[in-house]
Nucleic acid binder design. Structure first.
Lengths: 221, 221
DNA sequence: AATAAATTTCACAAATTTTTCACGCTGAAT
DNA sequence: ATTCAGCGTGAAAAATTTGTGAAATTTATT
């Protein structure tokens, strides 16, 4: 995750950077609101840690500006006893706030809470039907003519991915990147083998998994 | 009725208290999530009015914590965008939801609605049955073929969470976040050990706790 | 403080899954 | 009809994942 740390005090930035990087995230820094807005416009961050009190452009104004362009989660940092309008903070879309002095554990917990809360947004648990093929993504079930198909993890992921991109041509490269992960450095043909196994498990409905010669595969009704 | 008001802003607490007491109820206050959780554990309230954004422990996490111990009706107060908050709130068992700025009249209407809904429909008091496995969430009892199963706290929480999400695939990550809490920083495999112990206590009905290889677990009838 | 209970970590074996690879077949272009 | 890159497939090897017991640690109780 790419996290932008905005604070005018270098010490605080350094401390936050340490926490953030310890968790395996990438840290970026801005020294004031102006710089933060500029960086946010030019780059895609997953989260912004924003101090309230800063020169040039205060935290609230900076958040307001950033939210105009992109919907990035923001956690505000404020000194204890600092007076500010929390209602206003919500209105402009602040996701959470932490009061200084803060503990590393607390800050990381907040970061995780905000990003996970965001992640849990899409709750599509309907069951898709293609003739006698039923696909229940939420429950991880696939039925072939009413009988449960026992797929392996990769087969589930591959099928779900194909179905989510139904009707779209997918290269082996794209499938490997999106289903296997960006860090897969194996053979292209691995896809073929999994397609083979998936097809054999789908029985008659193997017809939905279409080969695109010279390209890859797609799911088509 | 005893109503707990949780908000870090004294002004808002005062306003809410006035309206709550005007209707003949008894009002109690907490200034943050931590305090709210503590008070709920020690006392019996009929309803909780909970702000979302607060220091120490945010409203969502506080509700989650409170619901683990007692099934008290909760109305959330928030100024955030409605859409995903409502979904998330529903997931953790919030009864209703009011967006700031709110009119006291509106809040009182919601309070009355929630308590009436509760009174007429004793949800949570029901005992779920899956063959010879009986689960009484309100009473924190689990019976295996009529005999009481002695589960540890974590086993109860894990089982109840699995059952509440029956039929839905749950990753270890999600289980840790929702059952253990947002601040759990431990090993994934901790889940496995608790699943193991839960299964051994469920005897023959261990079959309902299904392993999803490469993903996690789910409860399935 | 001592003891008991619950929770968490960890390592190992067993089971399952993933990947590689070579062979033969297919189908489109010549 | 021939060619040949691209594809389907089976089987072996490599890698991953889970169940489990036991130890270590933390938390609750006396």
């Amino acid at each position: 995750m790419k996290i932008l740390i905005v604070d005018d005090e270098e010490m605080i930035r350094a401390v936050l950077r340490e926490y953030v990087e310890f968790e395996g995230n990438e840290a970026f820094e801005a020294a004031d609101g102006m710089e933060a807005v500029k960086l946010c416009r030019e780059n895609d961050y997953d989260l912004v840690l924003m101090d309230v009190m800063m020169p040039h452009l205060d935290g609230f104004s900076a958040v307001k500006e950033i939210k105009k362009a992109k919907d990035i989660p923001v956690i505000m940092l404020s000194a204890r006893g600092e007076e500010y309008d929390k209602l206003f903070a919500f209105e402009i879309g602040v996701d959470d706030y932490v009061t200084k002095p803060f503990s590393p554990k607390e800050v990381m917990a907040r970061i995780n809470a905000v990003t996970k809360r965001r992640a849990s947004k899409p709750t599509g648990n309907e069951i898709l039907k293609f003739e006698g093929l039923e696909i229940d993504m939420a429950g991880r079930n696939v039925y072939v003519d009413g009988e449960k198909a026992e797929l392996t993890p990769k087969e589930y992921e591959l099928l779900f991915y194909l179905v989510r991109n139904k009707g779209i041509a997918l290269t082996r490269e794209k499938l490997l990147y999106d289903v296997w992960g960006f860090d897969f450095y194996g053979d292209d043909r691995t896809v073929d083998t999994h397609i083979k196994m998936l097809r054999s498990n789908l029985k008659d409905y193997r017809k939905f998994v279409v080969t695109l010669r010279g390209l890859g595969y797609k799911f088509e009704e």
